[in-house]
Structures are given as structure tokens and as C-alpha cells.
Amino acid sequence: MVNVKEYLERPTFVLIILVLVAIALAKLLRLETTDYLITIMFFIGIAMSLNLIMGFAGYVSFGHTVFLGISGYIFALIVYYNVWLAEMLDTLFGIPIFLVAIVAGGVSALVAFLVGVPVLKLRGAFFAIATIGLDFAALYIVKAFIPIINPEFFGAQIILPAYALAYKNNVFVAMYITFALVLITNYVVRRSRFGMGLLAISEDEDAAEALGVPTRKYKLLAFALSAFFTGMLGAIFGLNAGGVDENLFNLAHTIDMIVMIVIGGIGTVMGPLVGSIIYFILYDTLLVTYPEFNLVILGSIVAVLVLFAPRGIIGIIRGKTIRGKRLRDIIE
């Protein structure tokens, strides 16, 4: 018997449920356009995916967009040729997009695993730089080879045939499920032994290894899991946009992810979640007309936080005590 009351006393759990309910309600009551909701879920989702490796294990994967790109392109290629085949044979190859997205995410996870074996040996800035290198290497490879696969992919852009857009109705549902999975995975990992091990790695990797934490295995697992979800989100986002182009590899997406995590605070689930909510509120209220100026303000917030509150907004709150109850114990 699940103790409901116990769960209700966990603010992070409650917040996750609230976010999920809010998005479902907004969709059902048509408070926001479907596109807007999908965009929100995409950005919060990728931030929470990165959180698994950056927030918990302390490995700042700057080139994380590489997984958006890889999965986006794999997904687009599968859908493109699936539809093409279906049209050729005049039948419907009704492979559910969710399944294709899982495959696309799986490819990213596999790449993360293979690349992670050597690259996760690097620490700190060197890891960050190496992932930037990977992102650019993958970007230029895609730029070179995608147009060779098919002349229609001019400028490495794959526009999904109109036929594929029949699937588009399912995009919201697919995105919603993936988004929920990312949030729940974050929550479960944070509470698990695995999560404690990752946090120990981010504190002091050598000490963690000496205390029995299988650091290599854990880092690889977190990296692959993070890549898997990032990839799935990228694939579904690509479908929503009706196609993919090289912009998926754009480091600007990394900026969004990292800003959300740093504003909220690393090392928790609540942090990046709150961070991304703040991020969107700022984005929508501050300046819709000048997105650049918006980012200037966000950048300044990050700069101030890194200097004065390195553990973000949640980091400040976690240090407080309310009515004798230490917030640190309940904010996960």
C-alpha cells in the first residue's frame, strides 16, 4: 500500500506532478497552443536530461546538443524512408513514432556509451571541451554526408514528406510521455543508491571510487541515460518542426540547458525544474520582441549566481530551516 501522505510531503514529487498536470490541463482546456506546450516540454526536458550527468555527476557536457542532432537525424531518416517505402508500395507502414523515437534515442545512448569510455576519463574543463569537439565533429560530418545520401537533403536539411505529418497528431502525446519519463527518472535516480553515488562522484571522484562507488560504470550509465532522453526529445521535436537541419547541433541549445540548471541549482531535481520554470517566465514576460536582450539578462543572472550562490536558487533555499524542519531534508 503506497502511503499517499508520505509522497505529498515531498515537495519535489509534488512539483513534478503539478507540472505534469498543468501541461495536461493547458492542453485539454486549450489554454496554450500545442506547439508552445511541446516547446516548453522540449526545453525543460533537455535540461532535465542534462541534469543526470551535469547536475548529479558534475560532468558539464557542453556539447550535449550532439545527441539532439544524432537522434534527430536518425529519426528523420527512418521516418523519411519509411514513408517513402510506404508510398512506393502504396501501403501504410504504421510504425508508431514513439517506437522510432526510442530507437533514435537508443542510437544516441550507444554513441554516448562508446564515446564515454574514453572521454569520461577526462575531468572538468577537459571533458567539457572534448564534448564541444564531438559536437562540432558530428555537425561537420552530418553537413558533409547527409547531402550525399540523397540530393533532396540539400544543405543537410531533411524535410519530412507531407505524408509523415499524418503522425503529427501523436507528437504531443509522445512528447508528453517522454517528458514525464525524464522527470520521473530524475526523481528516482536522485533518491537511489545510484544517485548518491553520482553525487559523491561530483564531490570527489577519487574518494568516491575509494569508498566503493563504481565510478566508471556510474558515469557511463548516467551519460548514456542522459543522451538517450536528450535524443528522444530531439527526435520528437524534429517531427514537430516537420524536419531537421544542422541547427539541432547548435550550441545555443546547450546554453538553454545549462542556464536552466545553474539558475535552479545543481545537485537536485527541484533545482533545474524550478530553474526552467523561471527561465520560461522570464522568456515570456521580459521581452518577447528582443530575444537577444532576454538572453543578456539571463546571462547576467547566471553570472551573478555563479559568483554569489553557486548552488543556485534552490541552493539558497535548501540552507534554510522552517519551523525546525531543515529544508535540505525535504528538497530533493
Binding site: V60, I258, V259, N294, L295, V296, G299, V302, V306
Partner: peptide, 15 residues
């Protein structure tokens, strides 16, 4: 910390 701080500077300047 300095890496993230310079990252923030880059966002500010770029935009």
C-alpha cells in the same frame, strides 16, 4: 566555477 562564469559572460556578450 570560472568556466561557468565565463560561459555567462559569453552569453551576455554574444547577445
Amino acid at each position: 566555477s570560472t568556466l561557468l562564469e565565463m560561459f555567462a559572460v559569453s552569453i551576455i556578450l554574444y547577445n
